[in-house]
């Protein structure tokens, strides 16, 4: 088998049979906001998605071939790095932020906690080049992939110009991320009046509390308004993370981080940009008692006499019950996102 594999790499047939491609059938959930990215110029195809998926799981995207995208974005944890407050990267280095979930990307207008990118096409550049994450460059990745006959064929099958190129590496990853839509949680079924969408009393109470206390930032059925805000987390002096200021250079952006989507939040612990909270209970304890009046604290968290969001323990439990209805078990088990599909 090994020998056969070796032969097939050098035989001519890899240059002849190009599998037919077809557009991917993309289902847009009826309760979601508008698509926030231009996907028409790089609409997912069957072959493009298959290539993107292979790249997503391939360590060759890192300098020493050890760290793939999936290393920090694991499907069973809704494409986060389960159990890691800060993500680990190449040479066992530790990054300075918690890996954000890769889901519903096309509905978002800004990416990363600091908005380092606003383009689904370009965003992969950030982790690929980050010296603490993958520490690689696109031209070098292209050189590596060109040595692999299977990749050469997959690129030919996926793109009209057929090239293994920096552009097409990003295009394939973007196509794969385009189809990573999570919209089949119990909450979605409740909102869309579908079977399996019955909320109990506690979940209903939690939804009500959520609408009144959380939904101005965690807006729409994406549960983010794509804005950057300081939620009053005491800065960790060891990390000295300035948040969005690091991208914009504006002092008024200091300590502001992107409002994250809450979808699949039950699976994405630990929480916050630096992963400091291990449980949803701790997150809600912070919002009720821990919000600090740091520079640029969001006005929505300053309510006259009180900073933060006053909540009783019973209310916190109801909110957590509601947040758990955002778990989409189909998404985390969908074979389309598996390595070897």
């Amino acid at each position: 088998m090994m020998i056969f594999g070796l032969f097939s790499c050098t035989s001519d047939d890899v240059y002849e049979s190009i599998p037919a491609d077809s557009l991917f059938s993309l289902k847009i959930p009826s309760n979601f906001p508008q698509i926030a990215q231009n996907i028409d110029t790089n609409f997912p195809t069957q072959n493009g998605v298959a290539l993107g998926r292979k790249l997503f799981y391939d360590g060759r995207l890192s300098r020493d071939n050890s760290v793939s995208c999936a290393f920090c974005h694991e499907q069973q944890s809704a494409f986060t790095h389960h159990g890691h407050d800060l993500s680990h990267g190449i040479d066992n280095l530790t990054g300075k932020r918690n890996a954000p979930s890769v889901q519903n990307i096309i509905f978002q207008s800004e990416y990363f906690y600091d908005g380092a990118s606003n383009s689904i096409q370009m965003l992969s550049i950030v982790p690929i080049h980050n010296p603490l994450e993958m520490d690689e460059s696109l031209p070098t990745i292209v050189e590596k992939l060109k040595q692999d006959a299977q990749y050469v064929q997959l690129f030919r099958a996926a793109f009209s110009n057929g090239e293994v190129s920096s552009s097409n590496v990003l295009n394939a990853l973007a196509q794969f991320m385009t189809i990573m839509i999570s919209a089949d949680s119990k909450y979605d079924k409740y909102i869309r009046n579908e079977a399996g969408g019955n909320f109990d009393q506690q979940e209903l109470k939690g939804l009500d509390l959520f609408k009144n206390n959380c939904a101005s930032c965690h807006a729409t059925d994406l549960f983010t308004d794509n804005s950057f805000r300081n939620n009053g987390l005491p800065p960790n002096s060891k990390l000295n993370d300035l948040g969005r200021e690091e991208v914009t250079g504006f002092r008024t952006d200091r300590y502001k981080f992107k409002v994250p989507s809450l979808r699949n939040i039950e699976l994405t612990a630990p929480y916050m940009h630096d992963g400091r909270f291990g449980s949803l209970q701790s997150v809600l304890n912070f919002y009720s008692n821990g919000v600090q009046h740091t520079e640029n604290l969001d006005p929505l968290l300053q309510n006259n006499s009180h900073t933060g969001i006053p909540l009783t323990q019973e209310e916190k439990e109801a909110l957590i019950a509601f947040l758990k209805t955002l778990t989409d078990y189909d998404f985390v088990k969908n074979p389309l996102f598996y390595h070897k599909t």
């Binding site: 231009n38 110029t41 790089n42 606003n118 383009s119 096409q121 370009m122 460059s137 696109l138 031209p139 292209v142 190129s165 920096s166 552009s167 990003l170 295009n171």
Partner: peptide
Amino acid sequence: LEGETAQQEFWDYAV
């Protein structure tokens, strides 16, 4: 915003 789609290999050249 289009990134590399329209840039072709301008990215590599700029690198």
